[in-house]
Nucleic acid binder design. Structure first.
Lengths: 349, 349
DNA sequence: CGAAGCACTCAAAGCGCTTTGAAATGTCAG
DNA sequence: CTGACATTTCAAAGCGCTTTGAGTGCTTCG
């Protein structure tokens, strides 16, 4: 059932049907009602591709992951992000596309995204410290919103991010106030922008507290439970082990907990842990009282914010660079307490 | 840069350019080389919508989640599934769309998916025991592959699923052989088809071992760490508690482990646990030796299998119903051992 | 009463591509 | 040299929609 057939059945022109269904005013109420009824009866839906070709808009948003970070796409935070974004799109009739694209220097993949015109806008995920991609994005001519930020690039593009520096600085200061002097950071890959900002936040707060940051206590790696476990073991095996650990995700924190269990350490007493918590639907940080003291930043809100911003920019391309900075909420749980130095390792003492 | 401009620049007709770029044989090698070079030089990419309108194919696949199971979309297994499917699509030039659609009885959302023609095929996720949706899918006229199965419907549609009955029966038999008589099952929502099949597998194997299934030991709920934790607590509080637990996902198993830790029980000695393991990138089941005895079924393979099947069906719509049944691999870990009845609860003894 | 204005409707052009059917060119046997 | 045939190229139609510019039939006003 297409527009022509429907118009023929009703006995009016295609123009009138199109106008009636798209809410234009030049159609009498009676005609409109007749057309709407017929469209419903015949289950008519405009062909997306044809409408897109005619209007120049495809009513789809591309969510793009650089292939260099394909591993990131399996990060479950994106599910909540997607759900948040999808809610916004659904209200406005947009479809959502997922693309893993080659972002290496010689690649045309980002450019093609624009040239092929299959989406009206881009949400770019998980930027590394590589601003070349930013130029590629600009060259597409499509509006885009970056989830996260490019390091060392002027913030003259649209982005949605959390305030990593502030959140991790706050956590560090809190631990320092509790008397902790040896504070480890279990972080994502060093090439990720958020990881860099988080480390900076921790280091700055350490210095402010008169503590010299120790690079040995920073552990970079994939944001997996396994990495959380291994990094914790490594930290505890250090000659001068930490009494507190700041963790970049709840999933890694579960690995931290497992490592503590394995060594008979109790969270909040033998070892203080603060974790960033994306507040994903699939992981709850304990029940009424959170297990972990945490920096909460609901990732679904990030998805909503990014999608909302992108649609705004699509509606009004003249808009100057829009930056949305979401603050994490510091939430006290059971995993932190005053510093109790761990017994030195046996071979040390 | 569009086809017309490009053709004008090169000095040939649009037809020739189109044919040259799409690999048709009616173009001389010399002309083709000239055209390909020019296309590359001018960064030409065909407009997806226009090509789609002309060919009737949109080169996109829709991954559909019923809104009644929006909660399911945040299940991290889908990330690995997406990545697997995306790999297949990338090879063939397909885009991937994500849709959460209203699958309630009166809704036209599934129908619209077909009528709007924005995708060439559908992968339908996480079916409930509701075959009305199956009819809606058929009515779209689009090829579709179901990830999972509809209960109580003839398998006369394309699906990809794991052999839930067999896997969970195998796990149950294994535990029974170790002397366990009280075996609990921590499962997904009862309305999910896979949950039903898994329970059937467990019950059948119990009966085969001469054990009467106890519905009290079946716990349905969301596949979250939290549900794993709570169900384990509930199971252990039972008057006649289980000595073994079969768990439907590794994430829930992490909740089981947490509950054991909280009660001072050791996995594999005080309580045997077998978990289904989707082998997601984000969770590793221990290191070289798996922590949990598990039924492994790499979800990325499911994604690849479903996408491959769908493209096959798109290429050849006359294909009869194709069913891909993936078997889980039973992997021995450290979480199982011979039955040791737990001490009865105090108020009982 | 005729011109002007209004409300409504329509035919046709165009979005950028693919594909059909025809034309131009080249090749070769007779 | 001609006709038959293969090769290469092209103009034009069409995919299903939106939108422009042009009507059509009424009402209203000078």
């Amino acid at each position: 059932m297409n527009l022509r057939d429907l118009a023929r059945i009703i006995g009016v022109s295609q123009t009138t049907v199109s106008r009636a269904l798209n809410g234009y005013p030049e159609v009498s109420a009676a005609t409109r009602a007749r057309i709407v009824a017929a469209a419903r009866e015949h289950n008519y839906r405009p062909n997306t591709r044809a409408a897109g070709l005619a209007t120049g808009r495809s009513m789809a948003i591309a969510h793009v992951f650089p292939v260099s970070l394909k591993a990131e796409m399996v990060n479950p935070i994106f599910n909540d992000f997607f759900v948040g974004a999808a809610e916004v799109y659904a209200e406005r009739g947009y479809d959502m596309m997922l693309s893993v694209i080659d972002d290496s220097p010689g690649s045309r993949a980002v450019h093609d995204l624009g040239a092929r015109r299959s989406a009206d806008g881009i949400i770019f995920h998980a930027p590394r410290n590589d601003r070349a991609v930013l130029e590629q994005l600009r060259a597409t001519g499509l509006p885009f919103v970056v989830h996260g930020r490019f390091a060392d690039a002027a913030p003259d593009y649209h982005w949605v991010d959390m305030n990593n520096r502030r959140a991790f600085g706050q956590a560090t200061a809190f631990l320092a106030d509790l008397g902790h002097r040896r504070i480890a950071l279990i972080n994502g890959h060093a090439s990720m922008d958020f990881a860099r900002r988080r480390r900076e936040g921790v280091f700055a707060a350490l210095r402010a507290a008169g503590i010299a940051p120790d690079p040995d206590l920073v552990f970079n790696g994939e944001m997996t439970e396994f990495h959380g476990f291994e990094a914790t073991c490594a930290a505890l095996d250090h000659a001068d082990p930490p009494t507190a650990i700041i963790v970049s995700s709840l999933i890694m924190a579960m690995g931290v907990r497992r490592a503590c269990d394995a060594r008979g350490l109790r969270l909040g007493r033998d070892l203080s842990v603060i974790t960033h918590d994306d507040v994903m639907s699939f992981f709850r940080n304990g029940g009424d009282v959170p297990d972990f003291t945490s920096l909460r930043s609901p990732i679904r809100d990030h998805g909503r914010a990014a999608a909302t911003l992108l649609l705004r920019v699509i509606d009004d391309p003249s808009l100057g660079p829009q930056n949305v900075m979401l603050d994490a909420v510091f939430t006290l749980g059971l995993s932190t307490g005053p510093a109790h130095p761990l017994p030195r390792k046996r071979h040390q003492g």
